[in-house]
Simulated assay, not measured.
Amino acid sequence: MSFSQRLAPEFYARLHRDIRARMEARGIGLLLLDAADDVLYTTGFSFRPNERPVALALTRTDAILLIPELEREHAERQTVAAETLVYFEFPGVERAFSLLARSIGDIRGDIAHSYGLSVGRAAEIAGLFPNNRVLPTDIVTKLRQVKFPEEIVLHREAARISDAMVRSGVDLVTEAFRAGKPLPSEITLEAHVVRHALDIMDNEHEDIMNVPTLAGGLIYGGPNSAYPHGLISSRRIRPGESFILSLGCRVGGRSAESERTFVLGEPSKEHERYYAIAQEAQRIGSAGLIAGRTCASADITALTYIREQGMTPYLKHRVGHGMGVAFHEPPWVEAGDQTILEQGMICSSEPALYVPEVGGFRLADTVLVTESGPEPMTTYPRRFDEVVLS
């Protein structure tokens, strides 16, 4: 098997045409993107973000990638979809954006930037283009929400590997348990599943887009799993407890995550009860991810079910979030987001219960929104008898 993580130049040409059409409709003459995920999305350039600015400047005719000297070779090897403009260092005798402004020259129309641009950088840009209005825009944020077919191929592969990461974690725990050996710690489990994901890419992909957080996740055992987004620890998985494997990766810079709750050894009635409620809530949440409905409706329906089961004290978060170049990005599957779901959006579905001194109960899937219904891209087994490891 030979899988390519790189998108073809035609993808970026089409994407730039779409962005420019929206710029023209809004009277924007220059679009500046300095977030690493936006740069990757629009040019295919992956880098390690730091204090040195990297930004795409898109005009009606040109695509210019502003990079520091130490990124020159990286950009050349990645064949980015833009002309590169190189400055030497930060902060620099000549500032990076001063060089960019001088290279671009006069601009007709507004100058727009993403909402994530810092206040200081926006002020700097306004000073460099005193004759233009500088304002934020959601053009790229909105485009990122609906995936092109080529992107969905990358998400599917990321989902396949995410499921494989969960399976490798389960195998490590069960092999030790059945052999009577010391059970792995949360930290050991994390290292194992990340290594497994990288081995799959190394063996089965012809190239790897090395992005930040290429593979990783959250692994908690027993009472630790009752605290979402807690810090991973050296605590070992223990018999008679539940544990969570929340794992994901990025293929070609496109993300997926797969998450299941497991019980090691003999489950208790509490384990079975809480798991059943979390599983049904997740089914309801996923079922709401249909084109034409709102993000809010999917969240409200699933969380209402949890509250009706008397589980409000154990409810800590929304149903899910959009996934794309980032693991977490708009739209938000939450009661306050009235975004209408569209075919080609990809969202997580992960309502959960967090019961102090017992554990967390969470299932998560990466779900493709279609007009005919939700399509789970992660498919690891979820029946209670399938997640009890005996």
Rank of each mutant, 00 (worst) to 15 (best):
A63E: 12
G285C: 05
A112W: 06
H205I: 06
P182Q: 12
E334S: 13
E386F: 10
I340S: 04
L117C: 09
E76F: 14
L264G: 03
G322A: 11
S4N: 15
G27M: 09
V39H: 01
K181T: 10
Y220G: 01
M165A: 09
L99G: 11
R235S: 10
R22S: 07
T261F: 03
A82Y: 06
E257P: 00
I200P: 01
M165G: 08
V388F: 00
E259R: 08
I19A: 01
E386D: 14
T370K: 09
F45N: 00
A215F: 05
E24M: 06
D337F: 08
A123N: 09
V170T: 13
R17I: 03
L70N: 14
K142F: 03
Y41S: 01
Y274K: 08
V153W: 12
R195D: 10
A276R: 15
R6D: 02
L100W: 11
I161R: 12
F262S: 05
Y274G: 02
A291Y: 07
S349L: 04
E150C: 03
A96E: 00
P149K: 00
P136Y: 04
A364K: 04
A75H: 12
V355T: 10
T294F: 13
S348G: 15
L363G: 10
V39K: 02
R293G: 06
A335C: 01
L32C: 04
G265Y: 11
L303P: 04
R72E: 14
P182I: 12
I107T: 09
D385W: 09
R48E: 15
K316E: 13
L198F: 09
I208H: 03
P91K: 13
S114P: 00
